[in-house]
């Protein structure tokens, strides 16, 4: 390998090519109309993604017993398909539903990656709460479910993408750079898996010590730290390691709630006179521009 690699002889060349293929596929999918073209684009895009995966697997280490690579790949494919549909679907409601698909796929990968608590939290919070809010708002906003042409509920601004070529080009560069980062980034850590495993064991033992009640029912001879679950670890992390952040997160939520309430209050449209009265400025002349006076 040349000591000063240029772009062309970089080891990531296949990655770039795969990303380009994926980008081209996405671009084709993004063009409105021509269903065949879009289908072809979907195939090409998936192929590109597959190539990406394959290329990265070539660079990756051995398979880990606890992480099933095939499952991961399947969930990844599902997630990507969902994401692409979010971006391309002309009807917002469906886009939101596809987003739920992506969330589900992500939750599944979380499961595979031993983050059980997060997997379920993701489904509950994201799919259950946030996405439902989105759907609710979408439905609130869209009062015309169907028009004559047959594009059901699709406004023009939902059907026609904005500057797809530029966006995809940008995306390609981003993905290419991310590839370089994925490939090179871990080198900075320079930590082998063994050390990581050892540390995990240490932390689990520590957790076990701090939670003696849970270790009571363990069979004889087993390591008490084996019984420490993912939930317990995360919980311990939250309260023991990041308590301030946790509090701050609470404050953020609180403020968001306040914000939402205030925004909702503003939706009660008052006439100008009433507003003046409410503000205690009954006699004054306010110079409010026309469009500022509300869309009532």
């Amino acid at each position: 390998m040349s000591p000063t690699p240029t772009f062309m002889n970089a080891p990531l060349m296949p990655w770039y090519i795969a990303a380009a293929i994926g980008a081209a596929g996405l671009l084709m999918v993004l063009r409105p109309g021509r269903a065949a073209m879009r289908r072809a684009g979907a195939v090409i895009g998936l192929a590109g993604f597959g190539l990406l995966l394959a290329e990265s697997l070539k660079l990756a280490g051995p398979a880990d017993q606890s992480i099933s690579t095939p499952f991961m790949m399947a969930f990844a494919a599902v997630g990507v398909i969902g994401a692409v549909r979010v971006v391309t679907h002309p009807r917002p409601v469906f886009a939101a539903i596809y987003f739920i698909l992506t969330v589900l796929a992500a939750a599944a990968t979380f499961l595979v990656l031993d983050a059980e608590f997060l997997a379920f939290a993701l489904i509950i919070v994201y799919a259950g709460a946030i996405l439902i809010t989105y759907l609710f708002v979408l439905m609130l906003a869209h009062q015309s479910p169907e028009d004559e042409i047959g594009h059901i509920g699709a406004e023009d601004y939902d059907r026609v993408p904005r500057e797809p070529f530029v966006a995809v080009l940008l995306g390609f560069f981003l993905l290419a750079s991310l590839g370089s980062a994925i490939e090179r980034g871990p080198e900075l850590a320079r930590e082998n898996a063994a050390a990581a495993t050892a540390r995990l064991a240490e932390r689990k033992a520590e957790a076990a010590k701090s939670m003696p009640r849970l270790t009571v029912a363990l069979p004889e001879g087993s390591n008490p730290s084996d019984a420490v679950s993912n939930v317990q670890m995360v919980g311990l992390d939250l309260v023991a390691k990041y308590p301030a952040s946790l509090e701050l997160a609470g404050v953020v939520l609180l403020m968001a709630m306040f914000g939402a309430v205030v925004l909702a209050r503003r939706q009660i449209e008052l006439g100008e006179d009433e507003r003046r009265k409410a503000a205690g400025m009954g006699g004054m002349v306010l110079d409010v521009p026309e469009h500022e006076r509300g869309g009532a």
Binding site: L53, A63, I182
Partner: peptide
Amino acid sequence: GLTQGVTV
């Protein structure tokens, strides 16, 4: 230390 699953 990147295993295949993590890489994916």
